[in-house]
């Protein structure tokens, strides 16, 4: 008699530029679906576990950038493989011990459905906890950015706000942003994609018409958004 071993189900990461995996999940603010956030940007993040030290500092950090994200039409949604009662107890404890109110909902992903769909589980690190992941989802529900941090390293909240700023500026102005870009810094105009356009980019005429642009070569030209 032969036995057929069940093949492990391949669980890949979601892909940038594609619709973010849909979900319906219990949270500390009721049952929500991904589609409830349509029309807004969404930062979905996971943390390993409630009542743990690094996660507590991160939650205080996320609460600290909540208003900045709201000003950017961006909602915040946490997740861990804990029960909603654990989440409630933890966010109440954080407020009690540190005075920090946690204003955003937190998914209780006990069955790991959302964590699995988003590739938040890294068995090499932990078989039971989600890693420190961040997903930026645009108002159309498209996954635009992902950040993965290990269990041992708390995330940089300024970087999350900067990432949202960069995505929104890129969308609004059809530009890209250079390394370490901050709002107000110069942005990169689209690179020519033909030889003809590359020639134009280095022509006297282009240079005259684009005073104030900072051009390293045909493929790297920056401008201020005010220009």
């Amino acid at each position: 008699m032969t036995t057929v071993e069940e093949a492990p189900v391949a669980r890949g990461l979601p892909r940038l530029g594609e619709p973010a995996p849909d979900f319906e999940a219990v949270t500390t603010q009721g049952t929500v679906r991904l589609s409830d956030f349509r029309g807004s940007w969404l930062v979905l993040f996971s943390h390993p576990a409630d009542f743990t030290p690094v996660c507590t500092t991160e939650f205080i950090g996320f609460a600290g950038i909540y208003q900045k994200l709201q000003e950017r039409h961006t909602e915040l949604l946490g997740l861990s493989v804990d029960s909603v009662y654990s989440h409630i107890a933890w966010v109440r404890n954080i407020e009690d011990k540190t005075g920090t109110h946690i204003p955003f909902p937190v998914i209780a992903d006990l069955d790991k459905k959302v964590a699995t769909a988003y590739g938040m589980l890294m068995p090499g690190e932990s078989k039971t906890e989600a890693s420190r992941c961040v997903f930026v989802i645009d108002p159309e529900g498209v996954l635009r950015a992902m950040i993965y941090y290990p269990l041992s390293t708390g995330r940089n909240m300024d970087e999350i706000v900067r990432l949202v700023d960069a995505l929104q500026v890129s969308d609004a102005n059809k530009v890209a942003t250079p390394a370490n870009w901050r709002p107000g810094d110069k942005v990169i105009i689209p690179t020519p994609n033909t030889v003809e356009l590359a020639e134009e980019r280095t022509s006297e005429d282009f240079i005259k018409k684009t005073e104030g642009y900072e051009s390293v070569d045909w493929y790297l030209t920056k401008k201020s958004l005010e220009v």
Binding site: G30, T31, R33, S35, S40, E75
Partner: peptide
């Protein structure tokens, strides 16, 4: 209320 909470609540 945030729009996502309104949508969730209206379903209920």
């Amino acid at each position: 209320l945030a729009l996502f909470r309104v949508r969730s609540g209206l379903r209920e």
